[in-house]
Nucleic acid binder design. Structure first.
Lengths: 66, 66
DNA sequence: CCATATTGTAAAACAAACTTTACATTCTAA
DNA sequence: TTAGAATGTAAAGTTTGTTTTACAATATGG
């Protein structure tokens, strides 16, 4: 699964730490999701989408391998 | 987190097993998600939303406690 | 009513998410 | 050019998702 976190974060000038604080997770969680090291829970995805004011589907996209 | 899986499934006359097959998980995974016993991964949420042709946000909704 | 499909659970085992700590690297602004 | 902020990553540990197996309860169609 791919995601647009880094881009969305850049558009809002939010650091990984800022974003992490906003949704109540650790900075490493954000970093790891951006790096594709793991797939977040749906709760996280909904919160992230909410922060950016965009649909979950716009921020996270399935790949063939999923 | 709440979800509309049971309702969507009913509208399409899909059994838990059918749905599980469609997205490649076990029946108990579907059952447990419907029962609120756990929160699926974002990959699962995207696949479920895809099966029902509706946005993730329509099928899964955050609660205060999330 | 009876057979069969569907659903609800539960336990054990494994995989993956997430936290905390820690440190090295890269960016950025003064 | 140097200090501080931001990023990348890693290891160990905890929590949570997911599978498999299994069985009981409930629904449904003939």
């Amino acid at each position: 699964m791919k995601n647009r976190l880094k881009v969305e974060r850049a558009e809002q000038s939010l650091s990984q730490a800022d974003l992490a604080d906003r949704i109540g997770v650790s900075r490493q969680t954000i970093n790891s999701i951006e790096a594709g090291r793991y797939v977040p829970s749906t709760i996280l995805a909904l919160k992230l989408a909410q922060v950016f004011g965009k649909p979950v589907e716009y921020i996270f996209m399935l790949e063939e391998t999923d």
